[in-house]
């Protein structure tokens, strides 16, 4: 089956003007302008199957958004190859743009001074959606995201979270087959994040849509993505199962143990990283986990014991620290 997204050696290099501060440097730059080459995306390759949902992770400036912009046709790549649903995104063919959507948490695509319903109407005419399809789709999306009372207010009067929800409705009216979500939950409270996560999962399941998601909130990624791609300095550091990421990168596990007679000194079993009353959390080398667990059970009065992978935030931090997997 042809992948929904195919990327091979994709590159984006920006020439960024550069000069020191001050009048002297400004005068010098009149004669000779210095630029610096920034390799925002440096030859990445990946394939995403139709219907797959992939988390695209990386610190600020890693190249995530630049990649999504190239895949949605906003940016022209410097090199390499990209195909989305069989189209070359940079050609920006109408049929391609009708089948994708890029939702960015910090961008407003709706008419600022008008109620969102008016912007939805504009999108209907832009995407050539027959009214008999548009109305049920719009009403369903409004219901799913519970924004019935928001869509009649001017967009400028909505809070960030409210605006994000109506933005999502506007972005999905044409039912895109590939959805690029760039920080869709940024700045939102936990309840709102959870609702948007649930909605993305529901949309993907219902329509078999392919989703590529970037987020700084690991909860988004853990809730939605089985596969993650970690990018840093424009290069892919890891591409695989979220579970495998922890296995590959973190050479340790945590054991949370509660003892019958209170928490004594457990430093002989591993590194004590947290202590909360009777509950002690130990960090032990992965290869030692079974042996340490057996020793704890045999030598201590154990009330409860949990072996866990390290938190995903810690794993990602490790990936960036190592820069290569």
């Amino acid at each position: 089956m042809e992948p929904a997204v195919h990327v091979a050696g994709l590159q984006k290099i920006f020439d960024v003007p550069e000069r020191e501060a001050g009048l002297r440097a400004a005068t010098k730059s009149l004669v000779r302008r210095k630029t610096k080459e920034v390799r925002a995306v440096d030859g990445i390759s990946l394939d995403i199957a139709p219907g797959e949902i992939v988390g695209f992770l990386g610190p600020n400036g890693a190249g995530k958004t630049t990649t999504l912009k190239m895949l949605s046709g906003l940016l022209y790549p410097t090199g390499g190859e990209a195909r989305v649903l069989g189209h070359v995104p940079s050609k920006r063919e109408r049929e391609f743009l009708r089948r994708i959507s890029l939702v960015m948490g910090n961008r407003n695509q709706l008419q600022w001074d008008l109620p969102a319903l008016d912007s939805f109407e504009l999108n209907r005419s832009i995407y050539q959606i027959p009214r008999e399809d548009f109305l049920p789709t719009r009403d369903e999306l409004i219901e799913l995201l519970e924004v019935g009372d928001l869509v009649r207010k001017p967009v400028r009067q909505l809070s960030l979270g409210e605006r994000m929800k109506v933005e999502i409705v506007g972005s999905l009216l044409h039912r895109p087959q590939v959805l690029f979500l760039d920080e869709p939950t940024i700045g939102l409270d936990v309840t709102m994040q959870k609702r948007i996560r649930g909605f993305v999962a529901e949309y993907r399941q219902r329509h078999g849509a392919t989703v590529m998601l970037t987020s700084h909130y690991m909860a988004d990624v853990e809730a939605l993505c089985e596969r993650v791609i970690v990018i840093h300095h424009g290069r892919i550091l890891f591409d695989g199962d979220l579970a495998a990421l922890a296995d590959t990168v973190a050479a340790w596990k945590t054991i949370a143990v509660a003892l019958e007679d209170g928490a004594g000194d457990l430093s002989g079993y591993g590194e004590v990283i947290h202590r909360d009353g009777d509950l002690v959390t130990l960090r032990v080398p992965k290869a030692e986990t079974a042996r340490v667990t057996a020793r704890l059970l045999a030598e201590q009065e154990v009330l409860d014991l949990n072996v866990e992978d390290p938190p995903i935030e810690d794993v990602i931090e490790l990936v960036f620290a190592r820069e290569a997997v």
């Binding site: 209907r124 959606i129 369903e140 044409h174 039912r175 219902r206 078999g208």
Partner: peptide, 25 residues
């Protein structure tokens, strides 16, 4: 939740007609 029609099932109107629709809207 009632079902939204499947992705990609949307029909498109003719180019000229839809352009007029866009301008009017």
């Amino acid at each position: 939740m009632s079902a939204i029609p499947a992705t990609g099932s949307l029909r498109r109107e003719g180019r000229a007609r839809s352009l007029v629709d866009f301008y009017v809207t």
